[in-house]
Simulated assay, not measured.
Amino acid sequence: MSGGGRFSTELHHAVAEVCQQNGYGLLSRVVVAAEVVDDDGAIGLLVGSSPADLAVWDRVGILRYALLDIEADVAAGRRHGGKEEE
């Protein structure tokens, strides 16, 4: 399942507002992957981006960059004897 034009615009405005309220500056691009549950209880994956026409290689790049950042935090925690968050 993927978000379209209106979804993309609303996503951008919502994330931009949260970023601004928390001092993260101006939002440039956003990619979101979310697990959603419909009215029948079926689970699905929602992937959305803003701008809506964000190239697939840019979406993949942002997601991979985020994954590497998370993996680096986990590795650093293990190296220093801590436990990663569950």
Results as ranks from 00 to 15, higher is better:
W57D: 09
A66N: 11
T9D: 13
D38M: 03
E10G: 12
I62F: 00
A76L: 08
D53C: 13
H12N: 13
H80L: 13
V47T: 15
A52W: 04
S28C: 11
G44R: 00
G4V: 12
E86Q: 00
D40K: 13
S2T: 07
E10A: 14
R59H: 14
G23V: 10
E71N: 09
S2E: 09
A16V: 04
E85K: 03
L27I: 03
Q20D: 10
V32Q: 09
Q21N: 10
V37F: 02
V15S: 06
G4M: 12
E86D: 01
S50W: 02
R79Q: 10
A75W: 01
L45M: 12
G3W: 15
G82D: 00
I70M: 07
Q20L: 10
R64L: 15
D38Y: 01
A16E: 08
E84V: 05
A52P: 01
V36T: 01
S49F: 08
G61V: 00
V18K: 01
R59T: 09
A75T: 00
Y65P: 05
A72D: 09
R29S: 01
A52V: 11
G23A: 10
E35I: 07
D53K: 12
A52Y: 09
G5Y: 11
A34N: 01
V56T: 04
P51E: 07
G82S: 08
R59S: 14
Y65M: 08
Q21E: 15
M1I: 09
D39I: 06
V60S: 06
A52H: 08
V37Q: 03
V31G: 03
S2F: 13
Y24G: 14
A66H: 13
I43R: 15
S50R: 01
E17A: 15
D69Y: 09
V37M: 03
E10I: 15
A75G: 02
D58A: 13
V18T: 03
A42V: 06
D38K: 03
G61L: 00
V60D: 05
Q21L: 11
V74M: 05
A76N: 02
L46Q: 11
G25H: 04
H80T: 02
F7N: 14
D40S: 15
E85P: 04
R59A: 09
G82W: 00
R6D: 08
